[in-house]
């Protein structure tokens, strides 16, 4: 009888110790995540997408592919635009033909393989466009799974891929919950949006932000309290994609809807 009590006691103590150590570990992890400002870093890039303003013109996708030399006709892209059409009976149609590179010039929804879904415009309850790009997560799962250290998070929060060090195993492509990674058809290495790193480090805006006529895409410094984009993220109602994965995405959305995955 007493031995069972001792066993249970020891078990409880063990569990308590485990719990304490894991909390300590957790707080350490979040310290490294949020301690960027204290370490003297001046920049943490963040992105803001206003889905209310997006009209699905696809100029962002076109500009991105040309700027970053992603082969234009290959069906891969660093950023893309999705269309969601919800009907009155609750069915949701979604498409992104060629990633929205040529805009949405057809009222019908593209089902792939050359078939289209006719849409009765009078039965639409809501319809909108959602641009997608790399979330530059604070906890990037794509970086964790890289076996060779070819993808990493820079001090300014941008996740980059080392083209000369990547072995092309594709783990990161599978690990990304947002599906933003793909193989570059020319370099045969993992490729992804990096907020146009060559532009933001020169004081320019990313190509998609520059090309958007409606200011639906904005970039800002999350460590600068006076940054206008950061102000919007701090003071308005914004959401992120797939928060439940714990990746802490740094691309914020205005007007996100539950249909968006």
């Amino acid at each position: 009888m007493s031995s069972r009590r001792h066993f249970l006691k020891a078990l409880a103590q063990g569990a308590a110790t485990l719990a304490v150590s894991s909390t300590v570990g957790g707080s350490l992890a979040s310290e490294t995540a949020t301690g960027a400002a204290e370490k003297g870093h001046k920049v943490r890039w963040g992105f803001l997408v206003d889905t209310q303003k997006c009209t699905g013109c696809g100029f962002c996708v076109k500009a991105c592919k040309l700027e970053n030399e992603v082969p234009y006709d290959a069906n891969v892209t660093r950023t893309w635009v999705e269309r969601y059409v919800e009907m009155e009976d609750g069915t949701v149609h979604a498409d992104s033909p060629r990633g929205g590179r040529d805009g949405f010039v057809d009222p019908r929804v593209d089902l792939g393989r050359g078939s289209f879904q006719d849409i009765d415009p009078s039965r639409i309850s809501k319809a909108f466009f959602v641009p997608k790009l790399c979330n530059q997560c604070e906890n990037p799962p794509c970086v964790q799974v890289c076996p060779v250290g070819a993808t990493y998070q820079n001090a300014d929060g941008v996740v980059l891929v080392d083209r000369s060090w990547c072995i092309g195993c594709g783990y990161c492509i599978m690990a990304c919950p947002y599906g933003v990674r793909f193989f570059h058809p020319v370099y045969h290495t993992a490729e992804k949006c990096n907020f146009c790193y060559h532009r933001i480090t020169k004081g320019l805006k990313p190509a998609c932000v520059e090309a958007c006529p409606f200011e639906a895409r904005l970039i800002g410094n999350l460590l600068d309290p006076a940054d206008p984009v950061n102000r919007i993220i701090q003071t308005q109602r914004v959401n992120v994609l797939k928060e439940e994965y714990g990746t802490k995405p740094q691309v914020y959305y205005i007007g996100l809807s539950q249909e968006v995955r």
Partner: peptide, 16 residues
């Protein structure tokens, strides 16, 4: 031109 000017009367998007 149709990227923007193909009429899509979407009620909840600026496109409309």
């Amino acid at each position: 031109c149709l990227r923007c000017h193909e009429r899509l009367a979407y009620p909840s998007s600026q496109r409309g």
